[in-house]
């Protein structure tokens, strides 16, 4: 780990003012579960690390009649302990539980989960965000079993590591971002993630001196569920995840949203799968059809075609789980 300054501001505005204008010069520290590892791996070597832990306004959950507002520094443990979250957003709770480690869940934060960097092993081994050696993509020529099957036109082939991203998109969450001089803006969760085109970009729409500070999830009475295909049952990454949400009236779905995880550089909303759900009666055969639809447009790399089968299954099971939920 390279040495760095440690800054511990007491307000968002102060925090923004401590952040540099370009990526990599400074890093934001939330729960540390990703950043400290990234610092050790030297995939980032900032001059300053800005800790958000003294900004008490970033912690906590406010439940209102039509929405739940979550401070970005709220830990994943506190998120899943919240009764309103448990009641309305089982898809989100499942996504947290899937992380599989109480230690990560205790320390990790909601904002940190959304802003964590990819786990691509080429990236983490020093070959840059796109896993290149010279002009050659090591990912394309090498071992891409865990890489993207969607949105993989390049140069990014990694998958988004966020556990909460797919669920927040499916639930229609809004994210609040604070910039310098107290300016704030809002983006829909589905607009928050983006696929970087160059090494100087990151995986979200955040600018280098902006801070994600709050997440608002509307309470819309949607059926929702997350299904994760994971092999090892403790702390590990899933192979593929699917979050599904829809309104259900008389057995018929509407307002459907299907978002896949670990299949693309961003959480991947599947328009085809959502379409298959809307206006349809939910049963096993519809769920299977929806799973099949979710694979539309996939372009597997040399070693990850198996993920198509996992997408089919994850979506199918998420649909059935959501429909079965109380």
């Amino acid at each position: 780990m390279k040495s760095f300054e440690y800054a511990i501001p007491s307000s968002l505005e102060e925090a923004s003012s401590l952040l540099a204008q370009s990526w990599g010069e400074t890093e934001i520290l939330a729960g540390g579960t990703d950043l400290v590892t990234s610092l050790k791996q030297q995939v980032t070597a900032p001059k300053r690390v800005v800790s958000l832990r003294n900004i008490s306004s970033l912690k906590g959950i406010t439940v209102q009649r039509q929405s739940v507002r979550i401070g970005a520094m709220t830990t994943l443990a506190d998120l899943t302990a919240n009764s309103a979250v448990k009641e309305h957003f089982p898809a989100l709770v499942k996504a947290v539980q899937g992380i599989g480690s109480q230690q990560i869940i205790s320390a990790g934060t909601v904002g940190g989960d959304l802003c964590q960097r990819p786990r691509c092993w080429y990236y983490r081994n020093g070959f840059g965000l796109f896993g290149k050696q010279g002009d050659t993509s090591l990912v394309l020529e090498g071992d891409n079993r865990y890489h993207a099957i969607f949105g993989n036109e390049g140069p990014a082939y990694f998958v988004s590591a966020s556990s909460l991203g797919p669920a927040l998109i499916a639930l229609g969450a809004t994210l609040k971002i604070s910039g310098t001089k107290g300016k704030t803006r809002e983006v829909a969760a589905r607009e928050f993630f983006r696929t970087p085109k160059s090494e100087s970009e990151r995986e979200t729409v955040l600018r280098p001196n902006e801070i994600l500070f709050e997440i608002t999830i509307p309470i819309r009475g949607l059926k929702n569920a997350t299904y994760e295909v994971r092999h090892r049952q403790g702390l590990d990454w899933p192979y593929v995840t699917a979050t599904v949400s829809f309104a259900l009236k008389g057995g018929t779905a509407s307002n459907a949203s299907v978002v896949l995880g670990h299949v693309a550089p961003v959480p991947w909303p599947s328009a085809a799968a959502s379409k298959a759900l809307n206006g349809a009666r939910i049963d096993a055969s519809l769920a299977a059809k929806c799973g099949q639809a979710a694979t539309e447009g996939a372009k597997p790399l040399s070693g990850n075609a198996y993920k198509l089968q996992l997408v089919k299954t994850a979506v199918k099971r998420a649909v059935l789980d959501a429909a079965a939920a109380a």
């Binding site: 092993w121 080429y122 081994n125 070959f127 050696q133 050659t136 090591l138 020529e141 090498g142 071992d143």
Partner: peptide, 9 residues
């Protein structure tokens, strides 16, 4: 292992 670089991934 990545065959091209010889690195254990």
């Amino acid at each position: 292992y990545d065959l091209k670089t010889g690195r254990m991934l």
